Amino acid sequence: MPIPDEGLLVFDGECGFCTRSLGWLRLLDRGARITSLPLQAPGVPERVGATREACKATLHFAAEGRVLTGAAAVNAALAVALRHPLPERLYARTTALQDRVYTWVARNRGRLPGTSPWCTRHPSVC
């Protein structure tokens, strides 16, 4: 499957680790192909066909009519940002491991190093 030209990433804007991770993705996304929106902004979860609770539980990435969550979403977003299929190819070979790691990170993200949450810096959007 060809790499989409762009995508929408829905992240937890109240999470410092999520905000820091988004910063790393933006550094890789030199072509500004990824639109990132906090799940707390009005109507954002609905844009990926999800509820606020579902978006709070796991990252969502939408591109060309396809919505992915969790580790699959991370790899798809990286593939779009880098314009290279390597992240998704790696995920296809290590799905079980990456899904376990993603689940652990998602459960413990409040304890992981982060930065000032996106919604703290942009309260008018959240």
Rank of each mutant, 00 (worst) to 15 (best):
A63Q: 02
R109W: 01
N75T: 10
Q98R: 14
T94S: 11
W24I: 10
F61D: 10
L112V: 12
L78M: 08
S21C: 04
L90Q: 11
C15R: 14
P2M: 03
M1P: 08
R89M: 02
V67W: 03
P87V: 05
A79G: 04
S36A: 15
D5K: 15
L37G: 03
G7F: 04
T69A: 15
E88L: 10
G31A: 12
T95C: 06
G13V: 01
N75Y: 10
E64D: 13
L78H: 09
D99K: 12
G114L: 04
F11K: 13
V10R: 12
A63P: 01
T35W: 07
R107T: 09
S116Y: 06
G110H: 13
L37E: 13
A63R: 05
P85K: 01
R89I: 07
N75K: 12
L27Y: 08
C55R: 10
V125Y: 15
S124N: 11
R26I: 05
L22K: 14
R83H: 09
L68H: 07
A77W: 00
E14K: 14
R66M: 07
Y102P: 05
N75R: 13
L37R: 15
V105T: 12
H122P: 06
L28D: 02
A92C: 02
A32D: 11
L22M: 07
G13H: 07
K56N: 15
G13C: 00
Y102W: 03
A81V: 02
I34V: 10
A77V: 00
C18V: 05
L78F: 02
H84R: 14
C119A: 05
E6R: 14
E14Q: 15
T94C: 09
M1K: 10
E14V: 14
V44A: 01
A92N: 05
L27P: 00
Q40S: 08
A50F: 09
C126M: 05
T120F: 07
Q40A: 04
L68T: 13
T95K: 15
V105L: 06
Q40R: 09
M1E: 10
L90T: 13
E88K: 12
R93F: 00
N75I: 03
A57H: 07
S21W: 09
A76P: 08
G65I: 00
V80Y: 08
P117I: 00
P38F: 06
R89D: 00
R66C: 02
M1H: 11
F61L: 09
V10A: 05
V48H: 01
T51Q: 02
W24L: 12
Y91M: 06
R52A: 08
F61T: 08
R47L: 08
L90G: 15
P87C: 05
W24C: 02
